[in-house]
């Protein structure tokens, strides 16, 4: 990388992780620089969600190093990862179904104490997704899938993150809302957010991203600029249906 490229915010080096006796991730390495959108694509079951959960320290780290903003996360519990400014919008959204929309958003700011700043961010989220404001007293579980996704993104933003990891934000959502959510991701990037985006919708993700990584059965097999990967024959055959 050239000298004037922005500093690395997240660095994952040689990471292995898994559930049973055998590893699901095999020495995975990737990095995300400040203000970049980086996408991680790959088939179902490749290990993308496991990668994000390991970075968030929900999943045990079996080998390797994860550094965020210069801090080694090896022995950081998940609740402190958020406090350091690394938030995740998890796969399947995981909103709190019996809390109201507003309470869901407030949970995102659980570690914050400056009420005024939180109210400002709440208004920012409502400006990004006006439907959430309309529904702010409704229980989270009553929202449609797309609205829940917006809520999950808004909730993560309430933690005032330096970086956002999103796991398949377009999964199971009406196409018109997918467009809306990708617009929001672009807007966040323009406002300076650093983003690691996991997507099944590889074309949309690669078009949006500065760089991308391709994961196959727990290993990174390809990486490059978003455009390069879009033009890569192997990517086209495997993920773009061409």
């Amino acid at each position: 990388m050239s000298n004037n490229s922005p500093p690395v915010l997240l660095s994952v080096r040689g990471v292995s992780a898994g559930y049973g006796p055998s590893d699901v991730l095999h020495t995975v390495s990737l990095e995300v620089r400040e203000r970049e959108i980086v996408t991680l694509i790959g088939a179902n079951g490749a290990g993308k969600s496991t990668t994000l959960m390991t970075i968030s320290r929900i999943q045990k780290l079996r080998a390797g190093v994860i550094e965020f903003a210069g801090h080694n996360l090896a022995s950081t519990p998940p609740d402190q990862v958020v406090g350091m400014g690394l938030a995740q919008v998890p796969e399947g959204r995981r909103i709190f179904p019996r809390l109201t929309v507003r309470e869901n958003l407030e949970m995102g700011g659980f570690l914050r104490h400056d009420q005024a700043a939180m109210n400002r961010d709440l208004e920012r989220v409502y400006a990004l997704f006006p439907i959430l404001k309309e529904r702010d007293r409704q229980q989270g579980g009553t929202l449609s899938g797309g609205e829940q996704q917006m809520l999950a993104i808004g909730r993560a933003l309430m933690s005032e993150p330096r970086m956002l990891m999103m796991d398949e934000p377009s999964m199971g959502i009406a196409p018109i809302l997918v467009v809306r959510i990708f617009q929001a991701i672009k807007q966040l990037r323009d406002e300076g957010m650093t983003i690691l985006l996991v997507e099944q919708n590889a074309r949309a993700a690669l078009r949006l991203a500065d760089r991308g990584y391709v994961m196959e059965t727990g290993s990174i097999t390809l990486s490059g600029l978003g455009r390069e990967l879009l033009d890569d024959r192997r990517v086209q055959e495997a993920y773009l249906g061409e």
């Binding site: 609740d79 958020v82 995981r94 909103i95 709190f96 179904p97 019996r98």
Partner: peptide
């Protein structure tokens, strides 16, 4: 309601 989401919110 969702312990993993709770951890991702910064809850111990």
């Amino acid at each position: 309601q969702n312990p993993i989401a709770a951890a991702l919110m910064g809850i111990d």
